[in-house]
Nucleic acid binder design. Structure first.
Lengths: 136, 136
DNA sequence: GTGATTGCAAATCTTTTGCACTAAA
DNA sequence: TTTAGTGCAAAAGATTTGCAATCAC
């Protein structure tokens, strides 16, 4: 083992103003080491247990929201029954597989919204989400 | 009062293969008489009670889903905690006011998606949803 | 040590379900 | 009369919360 195996993740948490606790470090390693991912609280909790990381479901929920507030994650709304979180926080859109409830990034250039309405008076556009729903 | 005040709504329900019961007729009148609307189960139930329509929340849920299956309504996903239903079933997109959880149609021509990825192998695109999230 | 964080269990909120009752055809 | 639809209350599923115990600094 590296003498400082967690330093990158710890730095990232500190940079986001989050105290690097054992649970946050472990979850951050699952989320951010490797390629972009989409998780739900349940799926991340299950994955943590698989890796023998002792963390409660409540803490997973809290952590996902803290990471989202800190802009380490992005919340994606595609299903009224479950929250999805995306480790890819850059501007991009999604396929949603209705048969399997799976979410997949659409590469940035493959969607282009060429016309948008202006924001209603007094409002600011926070985000434009495009979801392409597919099924077999 | 007209001698056949409910005939239009009744025809619409029959046409959709739904038996025109007292509850369905009353809810359909709230939903379809007047301009396009966005409702949640809770909001429609409250509105029904305001109009002295005796209907249970469970029936409102069931009815909204039956209407959706019959293509009298469309379900809109903008919030992971609540289902919204839209009486406008034509192709169009939405503003979502994050401060007030309110949903509003964007006129058809004000959004144009000029490039879309092709569907993954074996999948068919069921719908493309664009949500413009705004806040004050 | 001190304040932030966590775990647990209970609470909350939305939605669905089982079943006896009622109403439409 | 027959079957579909309804109401209620209970169940289910996802998420949040209160509070004592624990941990980072």
């Amino acid at each position: 083992m590296d003498a400082r195996p967690y330093s990158q993740v710890i730095e990232r948490l500190r940079g986001a103003g989050l105290r690097p606790t054992r649970q946050r470090i472990a979850l951050a390693k699952l989320l951010f080491e490797g390629c972009d991912r989409h998780v739900t609280a349940e799926s991340l909790h299950a994955e943590a247990l698989d890796h023998s990381i002792r963390v409660s479901l409540a803490t997973v929920y809290n952590t996902l929201h803290q990471f989202t507030d800190a802009r380490l994650l992005r919340e994606i709304v595609v299903d009224s029954h479950r929250c999805y979180f995306d480790t890819n926080t850059t501007d991009h859109h999604h396929f949603f597989y209705e048969d399997t409830n799976r979410l997949e990034d659409i590469p940035g250039d493959d969607v282009e919204v060429s016309r948008l309405p202006k924001a209603p008076a007094g409002e600011t556009v926070r985000r434009v989400d495009v979801v392409v729903r597919v099924s077999g």
